[in-house]
Design a protein around this nucleic acid. Structure first.
Lengths: 216, 216
DNA sequence: CATGTTTGTTATAGCTTCTAACGCAAGCAA
DNA sequence: TTGCTTGCGTTAGAAGCTATAACAAACATG
């Protein structure tokens, strides 16, 4: 975007910022988001503590940046999957692949929220973008064979979140069910609640996708 | 149990321990588990910092204790619901009620795990107890109308986690689907991913329970 | 060349967890 | 009742963290 032609100073600056974020991802991967230490990152980069504050306003700002990148990455993955004609199974595969690629990144988006934290405006916009791609695929996949229930009736009156496109309630319902069911399996799997049970979570995921595409 | 007749010293000790845990729950409710501060708790109780270490080995031990209590509470809730004949809808209601009662408690059980953390033995035993109650209700509810799929075949070979009772694969599958789907909705709702969308998460939950009981 | 901006430094405040050493007081026993 | 033991709470301190302030050096630009 705007990172092409810039002054050498800005080039250096953005490169250091990127390096900081890279170390931050490494730390998060091994110690979780709560274990991220600016001091440790600074030492790893060979500079001393407060130097990092030239690049990020503080710990919260750095984490917010990582969250934004995580959302962006998921949105791009969804956009690509939605555009490649794989339908709902393709989208599901993309989601699972993205989740397994970096579980801490998944938790940054869908993990336990910090009570005080409020996501900045642009992050909620990316979230809308993700939802939009999902709705698009759901609409293309048809309404399926599930009979309309009371929730569909509710959605007919409370479906403004889908944006401009006036999707039928069945499509909205399908999208919400796709989202919550696959998140349910992925979340439990990534959190390790299936470990030691012996079965393959991938097959449970596949079975849910199966029922999802076969009219719920 | 063993807390009935005890020396006055032990009575005092367990009372202080309980008070500490109560304050800890309050703190977690407002600042999340990562924002729990032993120092702040000590000050609230009128004693100074290191005194808490007479009652808990440290921050990790206190949090582990809270996690254990959360698991215990969920297990008791499940046991009661399983015994009261409400079937799967009753169990689902109980789960939702328990989750909404204290969202941070839910996150302590099903939230983002800390990479290094390993749950102690007894917690995994309580987790098994929870699964056992769920399986019991699933078995009583019948196998439903869902046709056996490849995951059922897989479960026939990998269903040892159900314990002694040799439940049929369909029952195991039903339990896993009950668990993951309801967790999916609850997790997204409690994390606030539905806020601003306008629809009622309770109705989505109810719709999922509906499809869960009506043969998937 | 001079001037202003940006970067990195050290010093410092204030917070955290946690260990160590000490004094006091409560409970138990002879 | 007199002592002894055990446990509780204290202060002091080490090591870590975030974050700010003040300063020095390097850099880019007039």
């Amino acid at each position: 975007m705007a990172a092409g032609a810039a002054s050498p100073r800005e080039r250096y600056r953005s490169q250091v910022r990127a390096e900081i974020k890279e170390r931050a991802w490494q730390q998060i991967a091994t110690a979780g988001a709560s274990g991220l230490s600016l001091n440790a990152i600074a030492k790893e980069l060979g500079m001393s503590g407060p130097a990092l504050y030239r690049y990020f306003g503080g710990r919260d700002e750095l984490i917010t940046e990582l969250i934004r990148d995580a959302y962006r990455s998921l949105a791009d993955t969804f956009r690509a999957a939605a555009g490649s004609g794989g339908g709902l199974p393709g989208l599901a595969r993309a989601l699972r692949g993205w989740a397994l690629e970096d579980r801490q990144r998944y938790f940054l988006v869908y993990g336990t929220p910090v009570p005080g934290y409020h996501a900045p405006e642009d992050v909620t916009l990316i979230a809308r973008e993700i939802m939009s791609a999902l709705l698009e695929v759901c609409a293309a996949a048809g309404t399926g064979s599930a009979a309309p229930d009371s929730f569909d009736a509710h959605l007919a009156d409370h479906g403004q979140w889908a944006g401009d496109h006036a999707y039928p309630p069945a499509v909205l319902h399908r999208a919400l069910v796709f989202w919550s069911r696959l998140h349910g399996v992925l979340s439990l799997e990534l959190a390790g609640h299936f470990t030691g049970m012996g079965f393959d979570p991938d097959l449970l995921f596949a079975a849910e996708v199966e029922r999802l595409t076969a009219g719920d």
